[in-house]
Simulated scan of single mutants.
Amino acid sequence: MDHPVWRLLDELEHTLRQAELWQSTPVPVEALRSTQPFCCDTLRFEQWLQFVFVVKMRALLQSGTALPANMAIAPMAEVSLAQHPQLAVLLNVLQRLDLAVSE
């Protein structure tokens, strides 16, 4: 798919893999049923990015459904991944995603 957000999602996946934050084993299905923002009670932020955010955004793009307005994921990354050595690279991708989706 040739959509700017799709390319940014691919870049996010690549960046998470490079930062060793992409996990090869799925999370338990129960963890995905959280009603908390970012599934903060059941998942680490990077797990939420991988198993919820990327999956849902790709599904929205494939179906042609409108993307969420005024998305702001980068601030959560600043807090959740503050100590990660790849924070700057991750923030760069997430800030561009926030901007692309909110336009």
Rank of each mutant, 00 (worst) to 15 (best):
residue 65 T to M: 10
residue 67 L to D: 09
residue 80 S to C: 14
residue 26 P to Q: 09
residue 24 S to W: 11
residue 52 V to E: 08
residue 81 L to N: 05
residue 15 T to A: 13
residue 86 Q to V: 00
residue 84 H to L: 01
residue 86 Q to D: 06
residue 59 A to T: 14
residue 80 S to W: 00
residue 32 L to R: 12
residue 84 H to I: 00
residue 10 D to V: 12
residue 50 Q to L: 08
residue 57 M to H: 03
residue 33 R to D: 10
residue 43 L to S: 07
residue 14 H to R: 15
residue 39 C to Q: 12
residue 66 A to V: 07
residue 23 Q to G: 14
residue 46 E to K: 11
residue 29 V to N: 14
residue 24 S to G: 13
residue 76 M to Q: 08
residue 20 E to C: 11
residue 24 S to I: 12
residue 35 T to R: 14
residue 10 D to W: 06
residue 80 S to I: 02
residue 72 A to F: 00
residue 40 C to V: 05
residue 20 E to V: 10
residue 17 R to C: 08
residue 42 T to R: 11
residue 61 L to F: 03
residue 71 M to G: 04
residue 43 L to D: 08
residue 31 A to V: 05
residue 77 A to E: 05
residue 80 S to P: 00
residue 22 W to R: 05
residue 73 I to V: 15
residue 13 E to H: 07
residue 26 P to C: 07
residue 27 V to W: 00
residue 45 F to T: 03
residue 20 E to H: 14
residue 46 E to D: 15
residue 70 N to Q: 12
residue 82 A to C: 07
residue 70 N to S: 07
residue 9 L to D: 01
residue 14 H to M: 15
residue 62 Q to D: 11
residue 72 A to P: 01
residue 10 D to Q: 15
residue 22 W to Q: 08
residue 77 A to D: 05
residue 49 L to M: 09
residue 62 Q to S: 12
residue 39 C to E: 10
residue 34 S to R: 07
residue 35 T to W: 01
residue 55 V to I: 08
residue 58 R to F: 01
residue 75 P to I: 02
residue 61 L to Q: 12
residue 14 H to E: 15
residue 22 W to C: 06
residue 61 L to C: 13
residue 59 A to L: 08
residue 43 L to P: 04
residue 22 W to I: 06
residue 68 P to K: 11
residue 19 A to P: 13
residue 86 Q to M: 03
residue 66 A to H: 09
residue 84 H to C: 04
residue 57 M to I: 01
residue 59 A to D: 13
residue 80 S to H: 05
residue 57 M to A: 08
residue 58 R to G: 02
residue 32 L to S: 11
residue 39 C to M: 08
residue 28 P to W: 00
residue 44 R to M: 09
residue 77 A to R: 07
residue 75 P to M: 03
